[in-house]
């Protein structure tokens, strides 16, 4: 297990943002890079590798990785679809979007399609309440959703057939 040279250079650049001896500060950004580079989730091996890079104990990485909701601790589908379901989005019909996605993908929230293409998740407010309902896929926000827009998005994701990532 090893980051690409390019990513390693970036890791070193990130570490330099913090004072000497405070390289642990780089943990969150480096875990984002790791998740992007190693199949969209953080396996124990990946976390141990990051611990080594930052010269901290593995448990320090596990403690952090399990605290933050953006880190996946289990494999996820190629495209992770995260629909906001908090009050402001709910007021504008996020339930309908979730139901539409569930029936379209044939899975329930929290599940992955059998072909490993989509994982559907509900999340809490993503700071897009004025353009509700909305969902996030990769780093992209899809706003003012309608069922038609959701259909188009799914089509696009299928035809692009690329792993989504917060880092792209």
């Amino acid at each position: 297990m090893r980051f690409s040279e390019e990513t390693l250079a970036l890791v070193n650049k990130i570490i330099r943002r913090y004072p000497e001896g405070k390289q642990k500060s780089a943990l969150l950004p480096v875990l984002h890079l790791a998740q992007a580079e190693f199949d969209g989730w953080l396996s124990p091996d990946v976390m141990d590798y990051v611990a080594g890079l930052l010269a901290i104990k593995p448990i320090e990485v596990y403690e952090v990785a399990t605290f933050y909701s953006m880190y996946n601790l289990k494999p996820v589908g190629k495209c992770l679809i995260e629909v906001c379901q908090t009050g402001p989005c709910w007021l504008r019909g996020s339930d309908d979007i979730v139901h539409h996605l569930e029936s379209k993908l044939g899975i329930k929230v929290g599940e992955t399609t059998p072909d490993g293409m989509f994982t559907l998740k509900t999340v809490e407010c993503l700071g897009s309440c004025g353009t509700a309902p909305m969902l996030q896929c990769g780093s992209k926000f899809h706003e003012n959703l309608t069922t038609d827009k959701v259909d188009t998005l799914l089509e696009n994701l299928k035809s692009t057939n690329q792993r989504t990532s917060y880092m792209r």
Binding site: K57, P58, I59, E60, Y62, E63, T66, S69
Partner: peptide, 9 residues
Amino acid sequence: NRVHGILGR
């Protein structure tokens, strides 16, 4: 060497 900790939230 601490090997256990608080996990989750």
